[in-house]
């Protein structure tokens, strides 16, 4: 795997997945890694799923992660974990937000939101699941759930030597900085337990 590590962030448009990916990749660059990040956007604002792929190491070639290659997947929504699980290495780790956002076919009654997602995934992979939205709400802003997940992700990957609070400061509105940092720290704790 030539020393390259792979992180996949998956969510739904509006969850802050792209911002979390931006902070993560800038932090990794700050730590001196070669970094590539890939995302496909265009229609995410219209209810689509969003994924950000980050690869880092001494030298990165492909900007996209192959199936079975992700060291960690952070799923910002439960069903997105299911959608992307084939990208996880058999010995990789899945961080999942126990939170549901219904897609249009479910809202219209044309499909059912799958049941038992976390149970199925836990049986097949190393899963860390928690309610990031609830944690963020308790801290003060539900929208900082992305920072809770980012904190857990950073802790899981064991990425040292990055001034995360500085990178976060550069990327969020000043009046949201405190709540975002709290959310990030809370997420780190989740990964330790």
């Amino acid at each position: 795997m030539n020393g390259v590590r792979n992180i996949l962030l998956a969510g739904v448009g509006g969850q802050g997945t792209i911002l979390a990916g931006k902070i993560l990749s800038e932090g990794l660059a700050e730590a001196g890694f070669d970094v590539k990040m890939s995302e496909i956007h265009g229609m995410s604002q219209r209810g689509g799923n969003v994924s950000t792929q980050i690869r880092y190491g001494d030298k990165v070639f492909s900007p996209v992660i192959a199936r079975h290659e992700a060291d960690v997947i952070a799923a910002f929504e439960k069903m997105e974990a299911l959608r992307w699980i084939e990208y996880l290495r058999p010995d990789g780790k899945l961080i999942a937000n126990d939170f549901e956002i219904y897609p249009a076919p479910v809202l219209m009654g044309a499909a059912k939101y799958p049941e038992g997602i976390l149970e199925e995934l836990s049986a097949k992979a190393d899963v860390l699941a928690f309610r990031a939205d609830e944690i963020a709400k308790e801290i003060g802003n539900r929208k900082s759930a992305n920072m809770v997940l980012l904190g857990a992700l950073v802790q899981t990957m064991g990425i040292g030597g990055v001034p995360w609070d500085e990178v976060i400061r550069e990327n969020v509105r000043a009046d949201y900085f405190e709540v975002n940092i709290k959310a990030f720290e809370e997420g780190k704790k989740r990964a330790n337990t």
């Binding site: 069903m79 997105e80 299911l82 959608r83 699980i85 084939e86 990208y87 058999p90 995934l121």
Partner: peptide
């Protein structure tokens, strides 16, 4: 890779 049932509903 991890074997699973592809049952995610499209968005």
């Amino acid at each position: 890779n991890i074997n699973f049932e592809a049952r995610a509903v499209p968005r």
